[in-house]
Amino acid sequence: MSDELLRVNGLKVHFDAGRAPGGGRRTVHAVDGVDFSVRKGTSYGIVGESGSGKSTIAQAIMRLVPITEGSIFLKEHQISGLEGQSLRAVRDRFQMVFQDPFSSLNPRKKARAAIREPLDLLGIGDEKGRDKVAEDMLAAVGLHREAGRLFPHQFSGGQRQRLCIARALASRPELIVCDEPVSALDVAIQAQILNLLRQLQAEMGLSYVFISHDLAVVQYVCDEVAVMYLGEFVEKAPAAKLFSSAMHPYTWSLMSAALSPEAERGTLAKRPLLGGEPPSPTAPPPGCRFAARCPFATERCRAEKPALRGFGEGHRVACHYAGELEPPIPELRRAA
């Protein structure tokens, strides 16, 4: 596609996890071969549970962790291959918003200095221009222009996240990687931040990589979604497609564990719930990584690793039995 902004190919991030009991080294397969691309002006959601490797993808794109294998292209720049000065030269194109608005702002820096920081570091504009940008960004995220003279501790959690967004916007990036940007916030504030992100996207033509554990939030923000389990994408599709006809049993289990304020009491108890917890990413099983928890798993699943297969409209599923299984969620059955 011509309007492709970010392209991630075969990304692997492995960490050394110290010595294994039987000699040799243990390796954490945090991200184990993922491909995706983000179109300009759209949001790409990555959903998964803790330890799935979704945050590691965010950090790999930002070049905050060493990439073991694979490539990342931002337009024509291969950002996975750049180092030092040449990496810094393209840093203004992609920025990040972190999960915790308390630890992601330096307590010793006033708001204006925090927002200016990327400009100062990358040498963009002059002193006056940077202050002007900082003020403009404060206004853009709904804070007062004068708020720049305050220290982070003088802001509430929601306001701090606005500051973080302002900082990410300062260098006029095309891509913002959002790693669980609302999961530390109260619901009322969460809605404000989600709406702000959508509004900024519409105004500035931003693209987002949006990492979250919350399907409902991802559905609200994203155009395309990938579901991640133990370092791999198990299903990816345009959002409308995924939420109307998900095919992977893991995606189903995330959907059936989701709570709703309208649900009847004891709804969860009536749904098929997933047992157990994800196995360790240090020694991923040979076959399908979800097989150990999957209610539909067979011998084949445990032995043979399923590849992502296409099901039309950009819908790809890594399951041997995709399309053959009956979804345990009534809404999905009706749609299919």
């Binding site: 809605a191 559905q219 969620i329």
Partner: peptide, 22 residues
Amino acid sequence: CTPRLRLSAAARDGAAVLREIP
């Protein structure tokens, strides 16, 4: 202001804007 997961046909509609408490 609580986002809802909308499955099936509802998922095809564009997301309605989440109301916020100002």
